[in-house]
Nucleic acid binder design. Sequence first.
DNA 1: GTCTCAAGTCAACATGGTTGACATGAGGTG
DNA 2: CACCTCATGTCAACCATGTTGACTTGAGAC
Lengths: 155, 155
Amino acid sequence: MPKMSQAAGLHRASLKKLHDLDAALELMYYGWRGMTLEADDYLTKQGLSRPHHRILYVVARQPDIAIGSLIETLGISKQALNRPLNLLLERKLLTSKRSSEQHRSKLLRLTATGQRIEQTASDHERKVMRDAFDRVGTRGAVAWMAVMEAIADNN
Amino acid sequence: MPKMSQAAGLHRASLKKLHDLDAALELMYYGWRGMTLEADDYLTKQGLSRPHHRILYVVARQPDIAIGSLIETLGISKQALNRPLNLLLERKLLTSKRSSEQHRSKLLRLTATGQRIEQTASDHERKVMRDAFDRVGTRGAVAWMAVMEAIADNN
DNA sequence: GTCTCAAGTCAACATGGTTGACATGAGGTG
DNA sequence: CACCTCATGTCAACCATGTTGACTTGAGAC
């Protein structure tokens, strides 16, 4: 785990805007950072990091997910999944067991501790979102989601 | 440069939502991906990547920036800056010269080629934003910026 | 000449990815 | 039983991006 001087010199730089949409680009960058900053701090204290959280997040929302599905959902290789997943199993934040029908697959689930950590980390992120939404009202929140959906589905 | 199978299995996974704001968390994640996807593809073809683009982006908007300021703006160590910066100098996308008053500092500027590449990469990102904003109108765009500002300034 | 300070460089390390190759373990089929 | 398939697990090599720490270089200032 890197030391993560964390937000040390990370006040949004005020750069000259060459184009209309430069502000939007920068907001996306700092928005992502802003949302994940506290969660990452918390995870670091737990000896975990973003990939671990991603695993916990997915498993929390799809209990008994097989490893292959998890790999596909996360969009990384099984080798890349291997280390963080094993750490989570060793730490008993996750359990794996063979399926009764599909004995080939291993099914993953959160333990109580894993649930707690996933929830705390995600809570940090949700809090940031909630505070932001509170400032702009429901209509603003709806508009934000519409924009983000358009961007996300940009393929 | 990693091969970047790029969006291979990266259609937004549809996970069960445990909380109200889970959708927002996922939108932030996929939004960031969506905005940077095409730019990253382009950069990869140029043998560059995100850190190089970040450098070009900042220097484009702050010509004659000193290396120390650049380090501060980017929020990384000088050692981390070193490699991508040297690549950009070797490729002549950037020039550096000593300041006339502040002979200690080196000032960075984009070359014509550097400008072209910075612009093309940023154009990809701006296009994604423009398309999204077009779909939701000015009011939606303004609301999006307000939310993102609230998130970004969340310190 | 010496001090300061920006910049440059080198080594060691951590992390999060990638491919490729191969091993293991469980079911299904001949 | 022997064999094939398929999910999983593991090993090695590699790359990119970052970190600290330690040291050098080069220019100005005193």
